[in-house]
Amino acid sequence: MSDIPRISRRSLFRGVGSATLVAGCAAKTPTPAPAPGLDPAAPPLAGTALGPGPAPLRFTLNGAPQTLEAAPSTTLLELLRHQLDATGSKLVCDRGACGACTVLVDGAPQPSCMTLAHDVEGRGVTTVEGLATNNQLSPLQRAFIEHDALQCGYCSSGMLMSCQALLNRRGATDAAAVEHAIAGNLCRCGTYPNVVAAVLSVAKGGA
């Protein structure tokens, strides 16, 4: 684990305080009391301040150690797609509503568009590119193909990661559990029933 305080887009907004955000929009709003994190008199946050320029970042991507620099405002998805050319994870809604950018951070599914790159400092990130090993498709990937759990394929990367996380925690007990796990993954082609069938087939196969 890193000793840098973890910041996400959500927690950043929370820290700044919604009143401050609103105040920024309406000039006549009375100035609210400064949010705790912004009070100049308050003690500084623990750890090293980052930015505004690129700052060093280390994490593991699909098992390979990464050492690079990224601006603190960079999201994990931007880092993956633009700096590391790992374009499997897709940018679709850019606000955590569709699941197309889902990756696993230390095994837990997260929307990478809502995760700051520096939040994965010292952690392990798995993307769709990391599901196959030695060019062998994983059981879940094979099941997606066999059950035709994809059409255009644009949701598939995120869908696979949510499903893999469910399988990893041995939670694919029935269709409802799979549907719950992919409730945050939107598919416009309408592959959901086949995704459910694919995941259940893997769960039954004990993979």
Binding site: S89, L137, Q141, G153, S157
Partner: peptide, 9 residues
């Protein structure tokens, strides 16, 4: 499909 499930597409 393999290209789509590996992110290679």
């Amino acid at each position: 499909a393999a290209a789509k499930v590996t992110g290679a597409a």
